[in-house]
Amino acid sequence: MTEKSSITLTINGRDHAIKVEARRTLADAIREDCGQTGTHIGCEHGVCGACTVIVDGEPVRSCLMFAAQAAGKQIRTVEGLAKGDTLHPMQQAFMDHHGLQCGFCTPGFLMLAVGVLEREPDISDDDLIDVLSSNLCRCTGYQNIIKAVRAAAKEMRK
């Protein structure tokens, strides 16, 4: 083990003062040190996208960032999507369109889709499919994820 340093991660508007090694990935810090286990880890090498979170408005792979690099930034995870009991349109659309089965990849897809649509609400359908090809799902065959994201995109544009 190497020396741990004290950092503060701001997740969904809440500060978490934690002590981490330099090598601690953001994904591990969110889960292990901050206890926000909604963000999942699927490959730890940046391919599957299960760990996607939004950092300062950008959807990123949290397995490819070190926790210390995210100090002072606004981190958003799946736990912060709903406002109280009201689900985010993306969450609602995933339920309405059966965009999930086992649910393991779901937080990553939600954060990916929300992150991109907030930046590019008028993204073309073709580009949207490209965006969704960023993450892997093994259950749904993507059919209903695509349907759900299209529906939510419409809702988010309102």
């Binding site: 999507l81 393991f104 939600l110």
Partner: peptide, 15 residues
């Protein structure tokens, strides 16, 4: 099953 899974409240072994 879905309300827990879309809000990050699913409980997986590694949690």
């Amino acid at each position: 099953e879905d309300p827990a899974l879309v809000t990050g409240q699913g409980r997986f072994t590694a949690d």
